[in-house]
Amino acid sequence: MTLYLLMQGMAGLAQSPSRAEMLEVGMEEAGWSASASVPLPRGGADWQPATSHKVTRWAYETMGMFPSDPSEIISKAGAPPLVDIYIRDRRPNVFPTGDGPVEVGPGSYVPVSLHWAADANWVMPGWWPSCGNRGSVAANGARLRAWAGWVLSDKPLAQIMERSVVWHGDLDIGPFDIAPGGADMALAQTDQQQITQLTTAARNAAPAGTQLVAFYELSQINDRANTDPSAGFTVMIGPGASPPTTVQALVDLVAGDNNLGLHMEG
């Protein structure tokens, strides 16, 4: 996937990049401008390049790009976007490197194993999302969309990434504001009750022995989720539509966008 972004980014430049910033922008645009999925030698689903641009931006940030003072050359991680909202997952707050650990805090894209498991680091620890903002500017008017459903055992365990997801119900919460600084914010009690009703309905409708899942999208005008229709990406979830119906596609979406969250049970 990285090689694809590098090659597409280079192809979009008039000359070889003289600055890392040029290559970073080219790699992001390789995802933004992709009009279709990319076949890769793996099971489950083709890869959607639109899921990659936030990870690309974070990777360069961690290597020292985007300093708070643009004229400064630094030997530490750069600054996050002015607004970078997130749904908390289990990822660690420290990124190990050959030069020692780098403190990255919650909402980051620390590389983790992308296996499908209820305790995987890229999934949420509970049913109720905890939101935050890595940036320095408040995210006013944020909204949260949620869907609940279950995973069918229609494929053997060896092909778990190809299993199908059935969605049953959705809701829309907001608007609300998220303060800057990276602190986690719990939803209001009334919002938690709505999510409980949504997941309970899915649990009651799910066939016995199936795995329950809840998918969340946190979006705001200055930091839209990749699935937000206003972002205009191929992975958008339009009004009245549902998230992807394969496990692989869910993993690609959630692991590559800190605006998205997933919790599973069973």
Rank of each mutant, 00 (worst) to 15 (best):
I237F: 14
D69W: 12
V151E: 12
A255S: 15
G266E: 13
A138G: 11
A20R: 03
D257L: 01
M236G: 08
N140S: 13
W147Y: 11
W58S: 06
A146R: 03
L82R: 07
F176P: 15
I173K: 09
F176N: 08
L250D: 08
A14Y: 13
M236S: 14
N226E: 01
N222W: 00
R145Y: 13
L198V: 11
P229N: 04
W47Q: 11
A255C: 05
D228N: 15
N140Q: 12
S130K: 09
P229S: 05
D46W: 03
G182S: 05
I74N: 04
L82C: 02
A225T: 06
G100W: 00
Y4Q: 08
V38D: 06
A30I: 13
D170I: 00
T196L: 15
S35E: 15
N259T: 00
G44S: 04
G256I: 00
A139F: 05
P125C: 05
A79F: 01
Y4T: 02
V55P: 00
T227Q: 07
G232C: 09
A34C: 05
N259L: 04
W47P: 01
I221V: 14
V38K: 10
R42P: 01
S52R: 03
L171W: 03
A186V: 05
G181R: 04
G12M: 10
G240T: 03
A148R: 04
T245V: 15
T210Q: 15
G256E: 11
P49W: 04
V254D: 08
V38Y: 09
S219W: 11
A34V: 03
N121L: 15
S33M: 15
D223S: 06
L13K: 02
A231H: 00
D119K: 06
V38A: 00
T245R: 15
S37K: 12
G107A: 07
M22L: 08
A183P: 05
N140P: 02
G232Y: 10
H115T: 14
H168I: 09
W32T: 09
R88H: 11
R57S: 09
P106N: 12
A202Q: 06
L171C: 14
V166D: 10
T210M: 11
E265Q: 13
G107P: 15
L262H: 05
W128N: 06
P239D: 15
S219P: 12
M185L: 13
R203N: 09
P243G: 08
P70A: 00
M161V: 14
L114Y: 07
G232S: 06
A148F: 06
M10A: 08
G169L: 03
A117D: 14
